[in-house]
């Protein structure tokens, strides 16, 4: 019995730590989505598909063109940032004055488009980089370097956005627009420019996430569906547009998935997380950190 408990605890601790490591990347994605929602008041349903584009970018740069990983990553972040800005210019800008739900549906169209574009161009094969990072053993627990790297880089990315938002003029303007999008143009802020910059930052965060996720997962056209829905739930749970709430909710979700997966299949971890989400909608409809009214 004693021995059983010890082994059990080791696995439990390993799952808890893996959950935290997963939470980092989810927090990064949630930040990108929240930023776009908070500033432009648009939900990009196709956000995870931008990650898929980035993962394909990484795959081709590293495997086909033999660019080293550390050089491919920034290129890829730029690529997805560009896709983000383009998405805003082509799809969102003409719809800015339409009902918000139309914008959401239009990005749903982009989701179809990107998924099938990838299917048409690259086929439905699963591809992976073939980079095998070593595994770190601590005591009897094992953590892959890929996850540790992802967690570290995600935190660096989140901090960089935080510094940018709080220390630069553009960042201040972005936060101001998020507070009142009608007044700020009167104060001499070019809303169009700010929207494009925000979309590019949101895309860039998806690009960073794709560089990290490509080390852990195979790329295929539907890979976005494996973390897209979860990212939306995190954002809603944290309160759409609430940066800190999204950060906390990402870790809560990651722990539920990781611990749920420990006791049963990974899918049941997701089911638990979704169930928890709906339960929380009863208790805290405005998000985890919202004040009760």
């Amino acid at each position: 019995m004693q021995a059983f408990l010890e082994i059990f605890d080791i696995y439990l601790l390993e799952a808890v730590i893996n959950g935290i490591l997963l939470g980092g990347v989810l927090a990064l994605l949630a930040l990108g989505l929240n930023l776009i929602f908070g500033v432009i008041d648009v939900t990009w349903i196709c956000y995870a598909e931008l990650v898929m584009i980035g993962m394909y970018g990484m795959y081709f740069l590293v495997s086909t063109y033999h660019v080293p990983y550390w050089a491919a990553a920034p290129l890829c972040i730029l690529l997805v940032a560009g896709v983000g800005a383009l998405l805003h210019l082509v799809v969102i800008q003409p719809l800015l004055s339409a009902p918000p739900i139309n914008q959401l549906l239009a990005t749903g169209g982009v989701l179809f488009f990107l998924q099938s574009l990838a299917t048409v161009c690259f086929g439905i094969d699963f591809r992976n980089l073939g980079i095998q990072l070593p595994v770190l053993g601590v005591g009897e627990m094992n953590f892959s370097y890929a996850r540790l790297l992802a967690f570290g880089a995600a935190l660096v990315g989140i901090s960089a956005v935080y510094v940018f938002m709080n220390r630069t003029y553009t960042g201040t303007a972005i936060r101001a627009i998020a507070q009142d999008r009608h007044i700020m143009p009167l104060m001499g802020v070019d809303a169009r420019r700010i929207y494009i910059i925000t979309s590019a930052i949101g895309g860039g965060l998806a690009g960073l996430a794709s560089c990290l996720l490509v080390l852990q997962y195979d790329v295929h056209p539907f890979v976005g569906l494996s973390f897209g829905p979860i990212t939306f739930l995190i954002c809603v749970l944290g309160g759409l547009g609430n940066f800190f709430g999204g950060f906390v909710a990402a870790f809560v979700f990651a722990e539920i998935i990781s611990l749920g997966g420990l006791f049963s299949d990974l899918e049941w971890g997701y089911v638990l997380a979704f169930g928890f989400f709906i339960l929380m909608m009863f208790i805290r409809p405005g998000g985890l950190l919202a004040r009760r009214s």
Partner: peptide
């Protein structure tokens, strides 16, 4: 994939 590709573009255009 082509059908969904066309759907996607059409959906955006229609909206």
């Amino acid at each position: 994939g082509w059908d969904n590709l066309i759907y996607g573009v059409l959906l955006v255009l229609f909206i």
